[in-house]
């Protein structure tokens, strides 16, 4: 896995004086979807926050294409080519779709911004109709599209998506899934964090299972699909 774009080595994240993720080792290679699975409270989102620069990494390192981005500020992480979509569809609700995307391309040059916008809209043409609508008035699916589009505007090397499917109708999820595959096949390392394993395993190549802040399984998505008991043990056997 030496060609992995995103590499987390022994990453520990503390919140409220307690380690919520401890000694996380994982890597996401370019051109593939890698998934992190795990029950609620396993430390998945803390790991995403640590990559994004929102949570402090107290030990270990986060590297992107060999560059150490551990504990960089969020905007610097983004500048290093890592886009993180946090859980809960956190778009800018007071701003229109247009402004949401413009803000996301703020740090880019004029040409790159225009290209990025065109790219994002080619993935989500539906957004063009809602161009001037405020973020608050969008449906859940549309909000998820805006958030994904915001992440992709900067043409990242690494895309981290925390909970793609949570709270969305199956038909919407079905619409979004091909986008991730497409993005990955264009050479992006996609890290998909999901509580529900079904969709994630159908997309992913590499897979990790987190439980109580530790990696309980690391291997291939195929092995996990073939041996569901591996997954079940992580979800059920809490110590």
């Amino acid at each position: 896995m030496s060609d992995a774009l995103l590499v987390l080595a022994d990453v520990t994240v503390q919140r409220g004086g307690r380690a919520v993720a401890e000694g996380i080792n994982l890597s996401a290679p370019a051109g593939e979807v890698t998934t992190i699975l795990g029950p609620n409270g396993a430390g998945k989102s803390s790991t995403a926050a640590a990559i994004a620069g929102l949570a402090r990494v107290s030990a270990g390192s986060v590297k992107v294409a060999g560059t150490d981005i551990t504990n960089r500020r969020p905007e610097r992480v983004r500048a290093a080519g890592v886009s993180v979509v946090p859980e809960g569809r956190r778009l800018l609700t007071d701003l229109s779709v247009e402004d949401n995307l413009k803000v996301a391309s703020f740090s880019l040059g004029k040409v790159a911004a225009a290209e990025g916008l065109a790219y994002a809209l080619s993935l989500f043409p539906e957004l063009e109709k809602r161009w001037k609508v405020g973020g608050r008035l969008l449906s859940g699916g549309e909000q998820q599209m805006v958030v994904l589009a915001q992440a992709l505007v900067s043409k990242p090397k690494v895309l981290v998506v925390d909970e793609l499917s949570l709270g969305l109708a199956p038909v919407v999820v079905k619409r979004l899934v091909p986008v991730l595959t497409e993005v990955a096949s264009s050479g992006v390392a996609v890290l998909l964090i999901e509580q529900f394993a079904h969709i994630a395993l159908s997309l992913a190549t590499g897979a990790y299972v987190l439980e109580s802040g530790r990696v309980r399984y690391s291997g291939t998505a195929k092995e996990l699909s073939d041996n569901p008991e591996l997954l079940h043990s992580a979800y059920l056997l809490r110590d």
Binding site: L54, R90, L92, D94, V103, A104, F106
Partner: peptide, 15 residues
């Protein structure tokens, strides 16, 4: 306006 709306999200978006 983005920062006034949500500072953390804005930073995530590279502002």
């Amino acid at each position: 306006r983005a920062i006034a709306n949500n500072r953390e999200t804005s930073a995530l978006l590279g502002v």
